[in-house]
Simulated scan of single mutants.
Amino acid sequence: MSSKRIAGPEIERLIQLLAKVPGLGPRSARRAALHLIKKKEQLLGPLAHAMADAVDKVRVCSVCGNVDTSDPCMICSDPRRDDSTIVVVEDVSDLWALERAGVQNARFHVLGGTLSPLDGVGPDDLTIAKLVSRVAAGGVAEVIIAVNATIEGQTTAHYITDQLAGMGVKVTRLAHGVPVGGELDYLDEGTLAAALKSRTAF
């Protein structure tokens, strides 16, 4: 059964593009498009201008891989950052999450994903070589690997550790285990096992 066109091609295109945004399916995209159109002056116009600005001005940082309107990005240009520590993350969203938490005043390095042979993602598809070059340039004392606790994430962490071996840099990773405010009964077995294995003195 073919779906009927319910609006003009411009609106249909808006819906199709919104549906490609993570977290928005076809139904959510239709609702979002309708809301934007109803608030054309307050939302749709300013959004169109903001997106045009983003297309013109947003850059990928040539140092760390963050996205910003300058290259190097604001983080890499900040002289108050600790140059001796690099936090390695999978994606820009992870970098932003750590920045929001405000717990580490370090430099960052965005890998652009994780190693996944089944999906055809190898070392050359990520920025691992650039990370090794940054460490080899000197001045780095610690590399914190802050990747997700998935099989691909752990494989990537081990690969990076091997690549940095013998370079005189300390390689650490995020602790895994019981989250703050978490109840043991609701945690999966893998999280509980990691928490027990990484237990610390009280």
Rank of each mutant, 00 (worst) to 15 (best):
L18T: 08
A50D: 13
H109K: 02
L43A: 15
T85K: 10
L36K: 11
K197D: 08
G138T: 09
T156Y: 15
C73S: 12
R80M: 10
T161Q: 12
V89F: 00
R31M: 02
R30A: 14
L34Y: 13
R81F: 15
E90K: 09
A54T: 03
T114L: 03
S28W: 06
E10V: 02
S62G: 11
V143I: 13
I145Y: 00
S3Q: 06
V21C: 15
L34Q: 15
G23W: 13
E10L: 13
L184H: 01
R31V: 05
G190F: 10
A7N: 08
C64Q: 10
L47C: 03
H49I: 04
G45M: 14
V121I: 15
A50N: 03
T114S: 08
G177K: 11
S116G: 12
T161D: 11
G65K: 00
L43E: 13
K57M: 10
D185T: 14
P79E: 15
N148G: 11
T155M: 13
A136Q: 12
R80V: 07
I15S: 02
V60E: 03
V135Y: 03
A106C: 07
A101T: 03
I11H: 02
L98P: 01
D53G: 07
S116W: 04
Q104Y: 09
A165Q: 07
A29K: 06
I37Y: 01
G168N: 14
A195P: 00
L36W: 04
A149G: 03
T156R: 14
I86W: 06
P117I: 14
A7Y: 11
A136E: 12
R27Y: 12
K20Y: 00
A175L: 09
G113H: 02
L126A: 15
D188H: 11
V110I: 10
A175M: 09
R199W: 05
G65F: 09
A106L: 01
L111F: 01
V180P: 02
R173C: 04
C61S: 03
E152F: 13
K130C: 04
R134T: 08
G112K: 06
I144M: 04
L24V: 07
N148R: 00
P117Y: 09
E41P: 00
L36I: 02
G112M: 06
E152K: 10
R80H: 01
M74T: 15
V87Q: 01
A149W: 05
E90F: 12
A101D: 04
R31H: 05
A52F: 03
S116E: 09
V92G: 10
A201R: 15
S84I: 01
H35W: 07
N66H: 09
I11E: 09
G138F: 12
V88C: 00
V63I: 12
D83T: 07
D125R: 12
D53Y: 15
I145K: 06
R59I: 09
Q16D: 09
S62E: 13
A146C: 11
E142K: 12
K4R: 05
T172L: 02
Q16A: 11
S70F: 02
T127H: 15
G177A: 11
R134N: 11
P179S: 11
V135P: 06
N148K: 02
Y186I: 00
V132M: 07
K38W: 01
A175C: 08
